[in-house]
Nucleic acid binder design. Structure first.
Lengths: 111, 111
DNA sequence: TCTTTATTTAACAAAAACATGAAATAAAGT
DNA sequence: ACTTTATTTCATGTTTTTGTTAAATAAAGA
């Protein structure tokens, strides 16, 4: 689904709070998730769908409940992206390319 | 500004691509950033503003150009959030709370 | 089977996000 | 001063997101 879907899922404060609670508390039913919020249950249901589609949480049916939990794979995607990004800060990549790109631009305009 | 603003900034595919390019290439002017995209310059300008407000990039004025670069502090926020989350997967926290919460729920409904 | 409990889907309104073209701003070059 | 180059702000339209209430679905209990 792509990393930007994961970011999109966590961009909403309500969804972020849901995920943080699932991380702390483990499995929770849709009803339990909805309870602390002021917004309606259908609204929460939609948020859960967005989180599920992004791969951040997973849903299973247990009796008459839908039980949700945070999903490691969704977080792994983010970890990977962040690690790839971190390489650039740490300099464990070919820095030459960056420097050349900057010089090139500067030369073109400066002379 | 909050972590969900960072997620929101990276949720848009255009913005994500801009950030990834800035990480690879280093400093780029607004015009250079806009060039590879099909969308208009005003649109890119807005995206850059969103990224800046989220703390993911920083802008400086250099001659007649606005030069942008990725900003480590913005990424640090995400690293922190992700590390906090990772604790729950790794189990280096008091797991008792989670188990109790689940048992409690199960007892209440199961009997 | 009728009701209750749990949750989702549907229909729709309001707000936010994203795009565009035109005009404004600002520094640099002539 | 006037023009060019670089970029942003403005006014505006479209699409997406987020929320609401009402109805649909589905399993469990009486």
């Amino acid at each position: 689904m792509g990393i930007h879907a994961v970011f999109g899922a966590l961009a909403d404060p309500t969804r972020l709070a849901i995920v943080e609670r699932l991380l702390r508390t483990g499995d929770l039913t849709a009803g339990e998730i909805a309870a602390p919020f002021e917004i309606s249950k259908p609204a929460i249901s939609r948020h859960l769908k967005v989180l599920e589609e992004a791969g951040v949480v997973e849903r299973r049916v247990e009796r008459q409940f839908r039980v949700f939990r945070a999903r490691p794979e969704g977080f792994a995607q983010m970890e990977d992206w962040l690690e790839k990004s971190r390489e650039f800060w740490n300099g464990s990549f070919d820095r030459l390319e960056r420097i050349l790109a900057q010089e090139e631009r500067r030369d073109a305009k400066d002379e």
